[in-house]
Nucleic acid binder design. Sequence first.
RNA 1: GAGGGCGUAGCUCAGUAGGUUAGAGCGACAGUUUGUGGAUCUGUAGGUCGUGGGUUCGAGACCCAUCGUUCUCCCCA
Length: 455
Amino acid sequence: MSKPSLPQGTRDFNAATVQKRQFIFKTIQSVFETYGFQPLETPAMENLETLMGKYGEEGDKLIFKILNNGLDNPQKKEQTLEGVEKLFAGKNSTAITERALRYDLTIPFARYVAMNHGSLNLPFKRYQIQPVWRADRPQKGRYREFYQCDADVVGSESLLNEVDLVAVYLTAFQKLNLPVEVKINNRKILLALAQICGGEDKLIDLTIAIDKLDKIGWDKVKEELDKKNFSEAQQKIIQTYLTIEGNNTEKLKQLTILLDNNEMGLKGIEEINFVLDYHIQTGMSKHLVADFTLARGLNYYTGIIFEVKAVEAEMGSIGGGGRYNDLTSLFGVPNIAGVGISFGVDRIYDVMEEKNLFPTTIEQTTQVLFFNLGEQEAKAAYLQMMSLRDKKIACEIYPEKSKFDKQFKYAEKKGIPNVIIMGTEELAKNECTVKNIITGKQTTVSLSDLSNFEF
RNA sequence: GAGGGCGUAGCUCAGUAGGUUAGAGCGACAGUUUGUGGAUCUGUAGGUCGUGGGUUCGAGACCCAUCGUUCUCCCCA
C-alpha cells in the first residue's frame, strides 16, 4: 500500500487554520449582508458548455473537466473513439466530457440569472462563498482548489453600485485589519486608448502589453508593441499613458488631455471621478488609486474594473472585479447589466498569516477537562459535565482512566485552561477540585455550586 | 505549456572526495513519581535513504527515467 497523499494544489486544514479561515469568511459575509447582499450557492460542477469560452483561451485550458461515466461501455465504443479523435483535434467532445468543475463564481451566477431572470427582483444583489477549481500549476499563493467570496449586483447600471462595492472591499479589509489599496481603472479608457492607437481590434494586444509593464518594464513592452505593429507615434502615446503620475485628480487630468476628447475615454474618466467623488465624502478615497495600467484578464468586463492589493506584501492581487454590461447575453438573456467583486480568501489568509494579523482570540477550544479517575468517578463527573454544557461551557471528559500525568498533558496540548478532578476523596465530600493549569491555582468547589463557577 | 530547486526517522535536518552495522535535535512511548502536569535524568521504539533502472568490487551520494513537492515564467485569486 502506497503512502496516502493529496492531489496537487489541494490542502487539508487543521483546527487552527479552519478557525482562522472561518474568521475571514464570517467577516466578509457579515459585510456582504450589511450591504444588502443575499446568499446563493451553485453546484460544484457545471455543464462544460456553460464554462467554455468565458475566460479566454488560457482560461479554457485551466478548466477541470470531468470524465463521463460509462466510457467503458462496449456498445458506445464507436462514439467514445470518435470523441477521443475530436479531443486530439483540439475540440471538446460531449462523448468524453460534458461536465466541469466551476472555475469562478461569476459565470455560474450569470447562468443562474439567465435561468431565473423572470422571477428575480431586480436589481438583484447576491453573495456567494464557495470553492472554485483551476488546473493551474500551483505555486506561492496559487492553489488548484481555493475559495472565492463574490458579491454582485445585476439589473442596475448605476455607478452607485461601484461606489458601494468599493465600500464593501474597504470595510471588510478594515475589519480584517489588513491594509489594502484598491486600484481602479475603466475598460472604456483602455478602449479609448485602443481607438486612438489603431482601432478597437487592437484592444486585446494593447491590454496584454500594458498589463506586463510593472513586470518587464517599458523596453520589453515596447518590443511587444513593435511586434504587434504599433507605429512610433502610437507607441509614444502609449508610453505617455503609462507614465502618468501624481495623485488621482492629477492623473485623471493628464489622461483627459492625452485622450484628446475621445468620447469613450471621457466617459470612462467621468465614471472613475464619480466613484472617487463619493468616497471623498466617506473618507475612503485615500485607499483608492486610479491605475491606468490595470487591465484584468477576464474579457467580459466592460466598464470600471477593480483590483485589491495588500499593502507591503509579496502577493498578487487578493481581490478583483468590475462591471460587465452584458454577461447574461452569453446565455441568451440580453440587457442585464452587472457589476461584481471577488475576495480571494486563500491569499488573504496567507498574507494575514505572514503579517501575523489574526486576533489571538479566535482559536477556541474546550474550556474544561474532567479527569477520569475510575468508573464511579467518571459517571459522577459525566453528570456534572452535562450541567456545565447546558451553560454553554465547552467541556469534555478524558475517555480512559489514566494517570494524572497523561490527562494533564492532554489538557495542556489542547490548550484546555481548566481541569476538574473528581476522585473518591472529593466525591465523599460532594466536592470537586478545579485547577487552572495556566495559573496553577486550585479551588475546591462543592458540586452544587459548580455550574455557577466562573472559569 | 516552459524552466530551476528539493525528496534521508512522526517533524526539522546532517551525512564531508562514492567505502563496512545511516546519525542528531525535537516529538512519541516507558521509567524516575499507585491522586497533581510543564523540568531533569535514564531507557525504548521508529528508516526497503520517493520509486525503477544503470555505472561501480562497493551508491543515501554519480548517471538516466519516473513520481511527488516547491519556486519562477505564462496566466491568475
